[in-house]
Design a protein around this nucleic acid. Sequence first.
DNA 1: AAGGTAATTAGGTAATTGCTTAATTAATGA
DNA 2: TCATTAATTAAGCAATTACCTAATTACCTT
Lengths: 121, 121
Amino acid sequence: MEDETFDDITEDSSVGPAQRVFHALSSAPRRKILAYLSASGLTAGEIADRFSMSKPAVSQHLSILEAAGLLRREKQGQFVHYSLIENNLVNTLNGFVQEVCPVGRPIKKESQARARRKESP
Amino acid sequence: MEDETFDDITEDSSVGPAQRVFHALSSAPRRKILAYLSASGLTAGEIADRFSMSKPAVSQHLSILEAAGLLRREKQGQFVHYSLIENNLVNTLNGFVQEVCPVGRPIKKESQARARRKESP
DNA sequence: AAGGTAATTAGGTAATTGCTTAATTAATGA
DNA sequence: TCATTAATTAAGCAATTACCTAATTACCTT
């Protein structure tokens, strides 16, 4: 009944989904890409324009994020359109927090506190 | 009123607190350590015993987690006792999800869904 | 004070990362 | 069909990571 808890974490060897997500998130440029995409979908070029690094470098970051299941790639003519997949991110982070923080109360509380703060500043 | 949102992510240069947390979480052994500590505090040796790698290697992981503000180090005699600090983890992850996922609804919903699932399986 | 145990620091190394530029693939439009 | 633009793949390289063993520090016991 609580065996499940460590399974995801103990997927230690041979890179699993959670590992891919956490690795993807460990890079500031990649987190920045996610933040950009949270506002609206963008083409690879539009994303690259927002960084000072080369286009191939950004392309690589995008494929890491895609492999982690954090964003979707849609070819539209000669452009490639990227957009966010929220589910995986939310599930992975939340699942992890549930494992580490007893009963998952903390993040729920925090989430509610933040929501309240936004309502009445 | 929503300027704050990108600040944490745009701390790109010169390693900031969020970067340290995400980097700390990017390692499977380190996530495993957090999971162990979620059950109870442990000494460095007790933690090292749970891994097949050398003690110094574990010690290094511990200091990375400590630098990220995820756990606390307490010297007790000749032992060093480690225990979890939940706050930083929860705040960082939740803060990030709030930035990437519109209005932070998703994680709250997920959290509640999970809570419900645990109540009535 | 000497010997033993817990833990970290120091030093070294093989593998990986994060970029670069150059080459390639694919779609558009004259 | 040929040149142009978007994007990725390929090849290469400096810097970092993740481990190891050996040495050191700190504390406890006798």
